[in-house]
Design a binder for these strands. Structure first.
Lengths: 338, 338
DNA sequence: CTGAAAGCGCTTACAG
DNA sequence: CTGAAAGCGCTTACAG
């Protein structure tokens, strides 16, 4: 059976297609009685608006793309929910794609979205992404906002203020009396560099900081392996700082397994304050990097960008917040070295 | 500047639009030299295929919808990743939406996808969903597969075998010597009923089972509140079984805070085996309900369904697997009652 | 294997 | 406020 179209509706209601079209879009320029007749016809015929066809004509799709590496870090699940909420309210439907930090996959995903004429894209760039990687978006003038990782260029970007987050944690640990800390896990990204930079600044010169080249995926397994590498290298700091909470959770388990008691015999902290981090034993000290605010700002920046010029400000840095819990709060220096 | 279309490409290559169209779709019916000339033109002009326009003509969109309540449970993040992987490989792009267990939001989300002519939808139905709620999908003949929660009808469905999962856990706890267990958390859903049913069967008649009407959202906070309600009601079982792992993580914290040591003084278990559960202290005993397999089966069932009749089998139950960890593995009966 | 024409379902000027 | 015509960018028969 053929699809019911706007032409069928207009005939049934005794008006032209143009009029019916205005009614479905809620135009006030149609007489109320006419509009009512059209709406009746819609119900009687079981008509469903074909936004895809409308979009072809209007050359916009009312869809947005959200592309990230993966969801194994709940931070991105939280961000996704906030982003989806805000754009859904504006009538947009969301395309989603996961690059798994693979450049080919990222290219295919972005192309697929561009071919479907997305109106805009929020992207967490995969490792190794360059400005050139984004040519498929730029050549079609698809407004793009980066989040969490930036490329160093002037492209619109939303993220936590990672330098500030690192500094807060560094200051906290120093004030506890930590004299030796190590940083582990994460990938070689802008946000990792920024967190380390802040940590160094916050801890100050009195604190010895080990920055072994120990990277890891954002998983508990990755965290456990990272801290094992650290300990196997003979490094036993007062405090371990993990690149993020998921990694810190893995560090936590590995420390327990080695007979260390996080929060007592060794301090432990992460970044992000994923909701699940408060449900850890011991409760995990962390710096909230505002998943929901980042998602919301991405939506706001992108929506403001649509059909217009790149927005000002082009960079939004969310203010982090230190959340002190038992994983550092109970730790005390083993002995005074002064 | 106007968009580069297939007409521009065909002119530039000296062929007709139809021929150019065949080339972009990789048809073998075009002479190789002609095809090469067209491909050159595409590159030279910077042409981008407009799949949205193609889809209008073909009346299919090469998009699928994945609709669930939310991502606060990592189980659904894992499922999403697996589903996305498989459908991406088949050339589909994914629309996503979160209902937050709200029927209105679910209706709006499904309508938005239907208006955009999705080829198929995988849905975790919000609480209160009836067959009638799915009329927007059915009236447009959008193939639909349910997951995690079913409606009792014959609609295609993928989920874990929750009865079996409950039974495994019940048998495990009984074999440990647990004589009194309580089940807490979760919503009033098909999967909760099934888990409870299996648990009762597995534990047998010798085990006293408390099923207080304590429901909760899938969050650590929800879990902490649920177990507090239990304990405040004066119930102190040998073992607490939570509806899922996220809730169990909250139970874990609340038990510690009350001076109970999960895994020692009280046994604790959940369901799902979310990846992060292994990174708990103590390690959480759970029944894996196969997030990735569920996602994969959803993709397979839905793709098989597209353009054809509803698939057989219409129901796929993934086999669960018991994962014993310290949260029950270290527990021993306090005294013999025989 | 290639080309001219019609059509997917809508919206957009332009007359009236 | 309403209607007839053209067009969004593609694909699909149908001739050749």
């Amino acid at each position: 059976m053929p699809r019911v179209t706007l032409l069928d509706v207009s005939r049934h209601a005794g008006v032209s297609r143009a009029t019916a079209s205005l009614v479905v879009r809620g135009s006030p320029r149609v007489a109320p009685t006419t509009a009512a007749r059209v709406r009746e016809a819609i119900v009687e015929l079981g008509y469903v608006y074909d936004r895809a066809a409308a979009n072809l004509r209007q050359s916009r799709s009312m869809t947005l793309g959200l592309v990230m590496t993966d969801l194994s870090n709940p931070f991105f699940a939280e961000l996704t929910m906030a982003f989806e909420h805000d754009v859904h309210e504006q009538g947009y439907t969301l395309f989603i794609g996961y690059t798994r930090d693979d450049l080919d996959r990222q290219a295919r995903t972005l192309s697929a979205m561009v071919e479907r004429r997305v109106d805009g894209v929020c992207l967490l760039p995969a490792l190794g992404t360059t400005e050139a990687s984004l040519a498929p978006l730029d050549s079609q003038h698809v407004p793009t906002v980066l989040f969490t990782r930036h490329l160093g260029g002037g492209r619109p970007y939303v993220g936590a203020d990672n330098v500030s987050a690192g500094r807060m944690l560094g200051e906290h640990l120093r004030s506890l009396g930590v004299r030796h800390l190590a940083f582990v896990g994460g990938q070689e990204t802008s946000s990792r560099r920024e967190r380390v930079e802040g940590l160094l600044a916050g801890a100050g010169d009195d604190v010895r900081i080990d920055l072994p080249p120990i990277y890891s995926p954002s998983s508990t397994v990755g965290g456990a392996q990272a801290v094992s590498q650290l300990l196997d290298a003979g490094i036993l700091p007062d405090a371990v700082v993990a690149y993020n909470d998921v990694i810190a959770m893995g560090v936590n388990v590995a420390l327990w397994e080695r007979g260390l008691e996080p929060g007592r015999s060794i301090a432990l902290a992460g970044f992000d304050d994923i909701r699940i981090a408060a449900g850890q034993v011991p409760g995990l000290t962390t710096v909230a990097t505002r998943s929901e605010e980042v998602g919301r700002s991405c939506a706001e920046l992108l929506l403001g960008y649509l059909g217009g010029e790149p927005p000002a400000p082009r960079t939004v840095l969310e203010e982090p917040e230190l959340r002190i819990r038992a994983s550092t709060g109970l730790w005390r220096p083993r002995m005074e070295t002064s």
